[in-house]
Design a protein around this nucleic acid. Structure first.
Lengths: 349, 349
DNA sequence: ATTCGTAAAGTTATCGGGAAAGTAAATTTG
DNA sequence: CAAATTTACTTTCCCGATAACTTTACGAAT
């Protein structure tokens, strides 16, 4: 709180010779108070530089007008784009956001949720860390009656809402497209199996392979993580084994970037020597050469939907039934995944 | 706040037949309370699932243990990297962060600062929007006795601390390097003159040009903004005028990306047909071809320093004298800006 | 025995705001 | 014109935690 003395309702009240409740009501435009008085109060408040004290207000009202958010990372395009839309959506709805960052650490995540509860947030939106196993803290949130929405990275807990990307469908489309392009030795670099995006994107991949009768080579399905280093290492592992695929479908954009780096390092060319597509996008994708094809997740929609869901839940409280919203993906084809096109109209060089 | 009934200090006190102040002290590890009692209190708190009420705590103690932060954007590498280190530094210091986003809008920024004051944050860190002109809200912060630190984008207000990048020095180095590489027709794409980074980076550019006696062609100094589109448009403008420079020094990484896109579009080659360097970096710079040379700003250091400065100010309160910290830059040379090298050891093709 | 110091609590008084209920005067209503 | 309403406020109390005192009990010092 501030070290210098604050102007409070009482200060304004004293100055105007009215009770502080009158001031309180006037400032809130309560009809109890005459227009005359209301005007005087607002003017004086302005003059004295009155700032309400949210702690007092929250304590008294048992509301905070704030939504707590927990994300695993910030400095990643996917999350920063989501966060931006989270803030925007909250802003237009006149809510504040209390953002916390788990850094992919389950214990930190637990602490942050605890903090958000202590802050008395009206609802919580979480994208769980890669480590998270324990549901206890989230059940505590529900026990407290605080609406809980999972976003992208979810936990299966009854009573919570989910906003997810159609991972399985998007992965299916990406893989199907590769098969239709004539590829058969198709690899999948899959992050972690335990996280739902890892699980579901693999599932979509497997769906497509099965549907088109293309066998999955277990050696070409590689797990490790969602960052660049895993793409790099995954490719290098296959390269040194001499087991390179024709095509790689990666679980995230960074993993694909890692592959790009590795491919360049061993002197190969994308998409001629090895072709690729990834799940997800980045703000700089237009500047990566060759421009990668990708499965677009509508990040703005994810953040917006998550906030709107908590708000709905907060407002309806008893009536509200948890919803599971799936945000559709779009297949965006750029300069990779164009084998057929290239065969039709070969580039001369 | 939560709809279901809370466990409070009194509940624990009742159960143990002690006063709630005893419980409060015990939980805080106050020496007034015996180890025996403290243990019992903590155990019971745990069992009952006690969660402190920060609103009450803040109200009573006049502290919030929270630092308010206002940034213009999130989904940009520079800011998201800073924010990440802001969160990290606060975390290790046991402080919470209240993050707000102005979206480069001065009015929104003002509202957010007002909100942070109402929240009773212990200190505020601001990176001002591009629009911001009015100092009034920041003076209000100082009036309240709340420590204020500007980060990267500053306002000149007495009593505030600043953390800035050595923009002028970095820009000087970038330009000097170009001159030494033999370039004479050097352009500068400079964002906005009004923002200190726009001003200072231009100043560094001008310093170098002057020092080496290279004339500045006003037509090659272009303002417009800090985003990709301005780089694109700036280049196109010069291209259509037939006034292309040999070298461009851009005020930000995105502006340079815009130039990359424009250069590719008109069928030219970097660095052969036109060479470039930018101020700032991005997480994907390794994947942009040719890899751009840049002036590195140590983002982690900026966020960390800003938080440490507010904390210092909060702790020392009366003693503390505002500091102006300048974070040094590093010139990082990659695949652009290598004319001399290429002349020495030409690449064969 | 009296005073003193101290460990280990207990009491009280807020912190600033707002819901709920009360009151006095003015206005409407039957 | 008395009763019922309405208008415009005021009083009281509580939210949960804590700062600042005060009390109690007990052994040590004088």
């Amino acid at each position: 709180m501030n070290s210098k003395s604050h102007i409070t309702l009482s200060d304004i009240a004293k100055k105007l010779n009215v009770s502080k409740v009158t001031v309180s009501k006037a400032l809130r435009g309560h009809p109890d108070i005459s227009k005359e008085t209301t005007k005087r109060v607002k003017k004086t408040a302005e003059e004295l530089g009155y700032t309400p004290n949210f702690a007092a207000r929250n304590l008294s009202s048992r509301k905070s007008n704030t939504i707590g958010v927990v994300v695993p990372k910030i400095a990643h395009f996917f999350f920063s784009a989501i966060i931006e839309s989270v803030y925007d959506t909250a802003f237009v709805n006149n809510y504040d956001i209390a953002l916390t960052v788990s850094q992919e650490n389950a214990e930190r995540e637990r602490k942050h949720v605890e903090t958000l509860l202590a802050m008395g947030v009206d609802g919580i939106v979480v994208s769980v860390s890669q480590q998270t196993k324990d549901k206890a803290i989230f059940e505590k949130v529900l026990d407290r009656g605080v609406p809980l929405v999972f976003m992208d990275r979810v936990m299966e807990i009854k009573g919570t809402s989910h906003v997810t990307v159609d991972d399985r469908g998007g992965a299916f489309n990406a893989t199907e497209q590769a098969i239709k392009n004539g590829y058969r030795r198709i690899a999948h670099f899959g992050g972690y199996k335990e996280i739902n995006i890892g699980k579901n994107r693999y599932a979509g991949f497997a769906d497509a392979m099965k549907q088109y009768g293309v066998p999955i080579d277990p050696e070409l399905v590689i797990y490790g993580g969602f960052g660049e280093s895993y793409g790099y290492e995954g490719f290098m592992k296959l390269y040194h084994k001499g087991k390179l695929p024709e095509f790689i479908f990666t679980v995230t954009y960074p993993v694909a970037l890692g592959v790009y780096a590795a491919v360049a390092e061993v002197g190969m060319k994308i998409p001629d020597d090895i072709d690729i597509i990834c799940f997800g996008n980045s703000n700089i994708s237009r500047f990566i050469k060759p421009e990668m094809s990708f499965v677009n997740q509508q990040t703005e929609l994810i953040g917006k939907t998550a906030i709107e869901l908590v708000l709905e839940h907060i407002r309806d409280s008893d009536e509200f039934k948890p919803k599971h919203v799936q945000i559709p993906t779009e297949l965006v084809l750029r300069e990779t995944c164009v084998k057929n096109k290239r065969v039709d109209a070969p580039v001369s060089f």
